[in-house]
């Protein structure tokens, strides 16, 4: 009985000590709220670039007609540019936005690699 009490006391002390230790010695951390906003902007930008890629792929396999593709592609690119402009306010970049957008899309495309020549050509023309 005493051994049980002793054993559970030791385990309890160790577990409780481990759990409350960060309150005694809080980790030194800075967490600007702006970081969360930047992370969200980056996620939205990635989503916009992904949407450009999906649109191009759908167009290349004949799911989107040319007129719709032109319209939606322009819209999505404008959205991506807007987001990149906002991100630029947090971390001023060295590239022009147009170039930066093309580079980001190219990076997505390099890993996508699933596009036909048709879709690829059209993106470059714009």
């Amino acid at each position: 009985m005493w051994a049980l009490l002793l054993f559970i006391s030791v385990v309890s002390a160790a577990a409780i000590g481990y759990v409350i230790w960060p309150l005694v010695r809080p980790p030194s951390v800075q967490h600007p709220a702006a970081g969360e906003e930047l992370a969200e902007l980056m996620t939205r930008k990635d989503a916009a670039l992904q949407a450009v890629r999906e649109l191009a792929f759908d167009h290349s396999v004949g799911k989107i007609e040319d007129a719709d593709f032109e319209r939606f592609n322009r819209l999505l690119r404008q959205r991506a540019m807007g987001l990149m402009r906002q991100i630029d306010q947090y971390e001023p970049g060295t590239l022009q936005l147009e170039e930066a957008l093309e580079e980001e899309i190219a990076a997505f495309r390099r890993v996508g690699e699933a596009y036909s020549d048709e879709g690829r050509g059209r993106l470059r023309e714009e």
Partner: peptide, 17 residues
């Protein structure tokens, strides 16, 4: 901020424990 870090970190420790 430090209290946040302490409580949050403590909640992580609680999950593990």
């Amino acid at each position: 901020t430090y209290l946040f870090a302490g409580l949050t970190s403590s909640s992580f420790h609680a999950v593990y424990a």
